[in-house]
Nucleic acid binder design. Structure first.
Lengths: 221, 221
DNA sequence: GTCTATAATCCGATAGAC
DNA sequence: GTCTATCGGATTATAGAC
């Protein structure tokens, strides 16, 4: 609390959440903290370092939302709760969500900073775990967990991005239903039964040599 | 060609593609065109108007890529070709892809400009058409075409975004295969056969009155 | 540890001569 | 239609007094 660096970071988060990337300046931050700009440089060596700490806060908050879902009793419920928690995070803290997934150049950086990479890895690990336990429980078809996790993540991220940009002209509650329903469709599959059978055969063939079960129920690995 | 406005726009596209949003300044543009900054204001009233024209070019180019796929003979092939064309566009012109999907504030705008909205609508219409004809052809399960299109779009967009941010540490060719394979999984479904059956029942129930098939779907909500 | 003052750049946009 | 000159502002960051 009395640590000035903490107070600065707290104000920096507020400032970013209110003003976004553009409005995030050392002068504005100083004004919010109640000091003059040069004073900040006693605690942070540059604007970039402050911003990176804010990014860290965004990742921490996201993780906090996700981890709540672990209290659910079954893999399926944990997965569903995690999907909801991720959506809650995005809708309650859209600027943090945007920050986490922003291109580095938008923050004025040349490459993805280590802080972001670590946060992304942790998040990916979390989703991989949810996918794996669903697969073990027989809810998800046996498959490459990383690729399944990737596809599910991509789908959710795309939906949320579209909504946050305001291109889905629906109220929030309608979007929440749409989000849920869309995940259900992904699980069930969108192709017709006949087409799904054809695809399953094609996928098995593309994978190369598959043992037995060449009819009807071709399950990978 | 001799139209100075066209020459400015052409240089503006080059400048944006090379320098991104941050490096896009009227002074830099003037340097590239070979005049001084004030001269630009005889042809464009503001930086914002120039940027909006660049956005228009991005949308036009995307549409050009997508429309190529219409020469394929069947709905399924048209859909696959469109998915590939979209990926080609994103990988060959990542900055345009980013621009099309950027939050308005990143461009320094308060709301989504009409130009963007129109381009997005056209693109959405294109995907809806592909989905509808696949549904008519019995490849896609009968369903809400808009929501199916949305889910497919979101999935592809999410994958491409992740790759372009450099978080998927795979070579381009590997990513192209992953992208293709991931769409196949979406069509086929990721859930196990048993879970898919349960989900189908739940989805029918949620939709209200559905004929037959009321058994086999335990699992209280 | 905080201040004032300032360096050094950059920006968008305009006035007015030619 | 293009120029020079400039207005009025923003920014990050530093020097040096207190």
């Amino acid at each position: 609390m009395s640590d000035p660096r903490e107070r600065i970071l707290s104000c920096a988060c507020e400032l970013y959440l209110k003003a976004g990337f553009d409005g995030f300046s050392m002068r504005g931050l100083a004004r919010r903290v109640g000091v003059t700009a040069p004073a900040l440089y006693r605690h942070y060596e540059s604007r970039e370092k402050v911003l990176l700490d804010v990014v860290g806060e965004a990742h921490n908050l996201e993780a906090q939302y996700l981890y709540r879902s672990l209290s659910e009793p079954t893999p399926r419920e944990r997965f569903a709760a995690a999907g909801q928690a991720w959506l809650d995070f995005a809708l309650e803290h859209p600027r943090y969500f945007q920050m986490i997934h922003a291109f580095p150049e938008i923050m004025g950086l040349d490459e993805i900073p280590e802080e972001v990479e670590r946060g992304v890895c942790a998040s990916q690990q979390f989703w991989d775990d949810r996918v794996r336990e669903c697969m073990d429980a027989g809810i998800l078809r046996p498959d490459d967990t990383e690729q399944i996790g990737l596809a599910l993540w991509a789908h959710g991220y795309g939906l949320i991005s579209l909504y946050l940009r305001g291109l889905l002209e629906v109220p929030e509650e309608v979007f929440r239903d749409l989000y849920r329903a869309s995940f259900a469709r992904i699980f069930r599959g969108m192709g017709s039964d006949e087409f799904a059978r054809i695809l399953t055969a094609e996928m098995a063939e593309a994978k190369g040599a598959e043992p037995s079960a060449s009819t009807a129920g071709g399950e990978g690995k």
